[in-house]
Design a protein around this nucleic acid. Structure first.
Lengths: 155, 155
DNA sequence: TACATTTGTATCGCAAACGATACAATCGCC
DNA sequence: GGCGATTGTATCGTTTGCGATACAAATGTA
């Protein structure tokens, strides 16, 4: 492909990636509003529902988010009483993040959220094969880019 | 898939989409820094390089960005003398955005940017077929979600 | 002309996202 | 114990992204 063609918006890979990511967030927002959480906060809950009581860095390693992004985000979640933050006793440098009763309960209302993406695509639904190929490519890119971009979390 | 399984980070589609999008931005950042622009500013330039002199709303329609996001972004680009903003004479409600000489010149240095994504994936490169399938799925999602989420630009 | 409606742009406030940097606790070594 | 290095957390400033809202110009109706 020539330099000229590479700069056409239509030929970009980065733009539709960026746009779809934002559109998914927009699709989820009304549902997340009902739970009084934001999209990154929902991701934090996903991580904690899977494994409770993790350090800030552990959460960041899974979500590829820096601590300076997570700290204020977690503080807001603590204010809403979704999580608790306590210093670890064995290593007091660490802050352990754990779910409150309220945070655990939200899990029951959560399964409708990933389903909203499927529902939002009803007009032209993806085949199971298409979804699998898409997911595999995304994870391939995730791994490749994790090592390319400045590694922070032992990548 | 059961409710429990749907909430595993591994089974999410939204998370890798979100993460890869951020990683691509991170990959581009050092290159964009050399041009003294940010990632969304780069997208605006892509649009204007393709067709100069467009209204704020026209740009927003292509990038799926609201005017309240674009206005301050374009003001910063105007300060850097990459673009000019002038009221349209036929309809003074519209603000026409056009490239300056400086903005046009940047196009020559830009082709290396989309190539950085290919280069950043060298460890486990995608096949041409894989890229095509990925792009097709992304555009399919883009169209489906554009009609699902609150349409603003006549979608 | 008067006035409401529509269309388009600008402003404000909040929540990310991240680089740079400061700060605190711990660990290793002596 | 003392002290520098390491590790982890918190703060600051800038840029996006968007809802809500204010404002300006054009349009429609009478």
């Amino acid at each position: 492909m020539k330099g000229e063609e590479m700069l056409l918006l239509e030929n970009q890979l980065c733009f539709p990636l960026y746009a779809v990511s934002r559109l998914v967030t927009q699709l989820y927002t009304p549902l997340l509003d009902q739970l009084d959480i934001t999209y990154p906060q929902y991701l934090v809950l996903l991580v904690l529902w899977e494994q409770d009581s993790q350090s800030v860095s552990d959460i960041g390693a899974q979500l590829l988010l820096e601590t300076n992004t997570l700290t204020p985000l977690l503080k807001r979640m603590e204010q809403k009483e979704l999580i608790q933050r306590t210093r670890a006793t064995d290593d007091e440098r660490k802050v352990l993040v754990s779910l409150t009763t309220r945070g655990k309960k939200l899990k029951q209302k959560a399964p409708c959220i990933p389903q909203a993406l499927i529902a939002g695509m009803q007009d032209s639904p993806l085949t199971a094969r298409e979804v699998e190929a898409f997911r595999r490519t995304l994870h391939k890119m995730l791994e490749a880019l994790r090592s390319s971009t400045a590694p922070v979390h032992g990548g």
